[in-house]
């Protein structure tokens, strides 16, 4: 057991080392480079292209919230970040992040294809935003729900990149035993992508709500009461994307118990989710058309 804990500790250290080097999803890289290399990139295009990539969104928010910026209130909106940092700073940040690559990207891409992962993340973001509107959340907070949904699975990337072979085994276990992926991750690593996601959120100084969504979207009941609504929304959006098989982030057998819990918490019925599809699908298609790589 001691040896196992030690191994977990080493893995956790490797993950922490990797967090600062996470590259954006290759799905969006071409478009990011194209948009940012234009001499007169518009704020709207910049906002759109960044908001479609969980890593880039996280990095821009990280820059504005990081310790040297030390603003009194954390910024969780990309629009606000662009106003405060200016187009050029954000553009250069996106460019420098977009050109970063990892050596084993090829191997990990076969395990969890980037375009599928991207579609899943975006669907969860869009669904969380639509759910926020459906459950009467204040208009001004809708974007926070989108960002929380978009980033929820970011914790999978370091696991995938640092331990591709072990992650392949975890994916296989989930498939063979028909269990949620996070359980298979737990068996393999002693922790799951929620912990890694929370670690990313804290290191990048993202808002506490986003951190809790990254950490708690597989355990709605944990976490502070004030963020349970947004965590439940993201958990439900995640279950929805998995059940509907829109995109793929490795989870073929999501926790159905959790979906019921989240529905109950948000006082929604399964039929409400059917209606959501009509809102989310056209938004997703618009995003796909913008990226034009799918």
């Amino acid at each position: 057991m001691a040896a196992e804990t030690e191994q977990h500790g080493e893995r956790a250290d490797q993950i922490r080392d990797y967090i600062d080097r996470i590259p954006p999803l290759s799905t969006t890289v071409t478009k990011v480079l194209e948009v940012c290399n234009r001499p007169n990139t518009s704020a709207n295009d910049l906002n759109k292209i960044i908001s479609f990539d969980p890593v880039l969104t996280g990095r821009v928010l990280r820059l504005i919230n990081s310790s040297f910026y030390s603003l009194p209130e954390q910024v969780s909106s990309l629009t606000r970040a662009i106003i405060m940092l200016g187009i050029n700073t954000v553009k250069n940040l996106a460019l420098s992040t977009a050109v970063a690559r990892t050596i084993n990207a090829m191997q990990s891409q076969q395990l969890l294809p980037s375009d599928q992962f991207w579609t899943h993340s975006l669907t969860v973001g869009l669904t969380a935003k639509a759910l926020a509107a459906r459950t009467g959340v204040d208009d001004r907070a809708h974007d926070d729900f989108f960002v929380a949904g978009l980033l929820h699975d970011l914790g999978k990337m370091p696991l995938l990149q640092c331990f591709a072979a072990d992650y392949a085994s975890a994916l296989q276990t989930a498939r063979e035993q028909q269990i949620p992926l996070y359980r298979a991750e737990e068996q393999m690593f002693g922790f799951h992508h929620g912990w890694v996601g929370q670690e990313i959120g804290e290191r990048w100084k993202l808002s506490s709500t986003i951190c809790e969504c990254m950490g708690g979207h597989h355990d709605v009941s944990k976490g502070p009461r004030e963020s349970q609504g947004v965590v439940a929304t993201v958990a439900l959006a995640n279950s929805f994307a998995c059940h509907e098989s829109i995109g793929f982030a490795g989870d073929s057998f999501p926790d159905s118990e959790q979906m019921s819990q989240a529905l109950q918490f948000l006082k929604l019925a399964p039929a409400d989710m059917e209606q959501l599809k009509q809102t989310v699908q056209p938004e997703l298609e618009k995003a796909q058309a913008f990226i034009k790589v799918l």
Binding site: A43, N44, S77, T79, R80, I82, I83, M84, R140, D143
Partner: peptide, 8 residues
């Protein structure tokens, strides 16, 4: 977006 930017 336009509204939020305006308030920022």
């Amino acid at each position: 977006v336009a509204r939020e930017a305006e308030s920022a």
